[in-house]
Amino acid sequence: MKFVHDLKADVTADIVYMMCPMHLLKLDEMIKGLEKGQVLEILTDYDGALEDIPQWCEKTGNEFIGMDEDEDYYKFYVKKTGNGQ
């Protein structure tokens, strides 16, 4: 897993405590609203996101920049590079 620190995102989706698979649904919804090259930050406490978000990026052709950890949740950074999704 690639770790990044103090990364500035264009948009943040705070889905801490929201149930699985909200991390994927929100990712899908938010990335659609971004311009190519913009970065989305997703905050979640769901451990499954550690595998799911990089896999989703690979599948949809978006760039998984990396992740960071806060006290009780993760921060994932995704750059929109794919077409459509």
């Binding site: 705070d14 405590y17 149930m19 698979p21």
Partner: peptide, 20 residues
């Protein structure tokens, strides 16, 4: 808006993943 809350009922993604 923006306030985090731990669900009371776990399950599916009804109510935005906050109440199954």
């Amino acid at each position: 808006e923006g306030l985090r809350i731990v669900p009371l009922i776990y399950g599916g993604i009804q109510e935005g993943g906050r109440r199954a």
